[in-house]
Simulated scan of single mutants.
Amino acid sequence: MNLEKDLKFQGNDPGAVRFGNFINYYSFYPPNERIERLPKNIWKTEDIIYHCLDVGCNTGDLTQAFSSFLCRYGNQNKILGIDIDPTLIDRAKEQNTTDIKFVCIDIMSSDGYDFIQTYLNNIGLKKFQIVTCFSVTMWIHLNHGDAGLKTFLERMSNLAEVLVIEAQPWKCYKSAVKRMKKSKNNFQHFQFLKYRENIVKDIEDILIQQCKRIKITETEDTKWGRKTLFFR
């Protein structure tokens, strides 16, 4: 039994997990809170098929909500949702009412990244029209360090025409580290991180300066204090 994944949300404490793979995540962070803040003027309105990648999809609730959001503009969409946790992917498949494809892969592994490249080749594309990363960057950063975060952002940039990033602020890092210590575990990279208090701005700078992305817009903060950034 995986005790970490069996932890339930109690009050405002979601428990401790290493990869953000909370089993009841969307009871804590409801999808509509993000969807209602998405900009309305950056999506193509002609009849097209959006091919999208949702990184860190958890049980797929937000993935399905985003699919419905795109349909409001008359556009079909084909979304690939990926997550590192096989239990979450199984649940996503069980409750999926669309043709979204859910796959368990680690995007930071060479096999995981190769899978994405092969998927694109099979549908005849070099990039997804949209790649979404909602509250994923902190877990990449804590588990792979500064170099891993930059690698992740470079990979996402290479995969996306439009890149959607909701990055956790520094206070979330401190909370995650504290919860992990309570479970007698730790994030070994944490004390060596150079990107720290201004991490959201650091991520924006990496994408603009190193990945040569252009920032389109950003949303207002959610109720839990996170904004979503959009890059072309």
Rank of each mutant, 00 (worst) to 15 (best):
Y119A: 09
N121I: 13
L125Y: 09
L125V: 08
L125G: 04
F128H: 05
F128V: 03
F128Q: 03
Q129R: 09
V131Q: 00
V131C: 10
T132D: 08
T132W: 04
T137E: 07
W139G: 03
I140M: 07
H141E: 03
G145F: 07
A147F: 11
G148E: 04
K150H: 12
F152A: 10
F152N: 02
F152C: 09
E154F: 01
R155D: 05
N158W: 05
N158Y: 00
L159A: 06
L159S: 03
A160P: 03
L163A: 06
V164M: 10
A167G: 12
P169W: 00
W170M: 08
K171T: 04
Y173H: 04
K174E: 15
K174F: 09
K174S: 13
A176W: 05
V177N: 03
K181V: 11
K182A: 03
S183I: 12
K184D: 15
Q188Y: 14
H189C: 06
F190P: 06
Q191P: 12
F192A: 11
F192V: 12
I199Q: 00
K201E: 15
D202V: 10
D202T: 10
D202H: 08
E204V: 14
D205C: 11
I206R: 00
I206L: 11
Q209W: 10
Q209P: 03
Q209Y: 11
C211T: 04
C211Y: 06
C211R: 01
R213V: 01
R213E: 09
I214A: 14
K215N: 10
T217I: 09
T219Q: 05
E220R: 15
D221M: 15
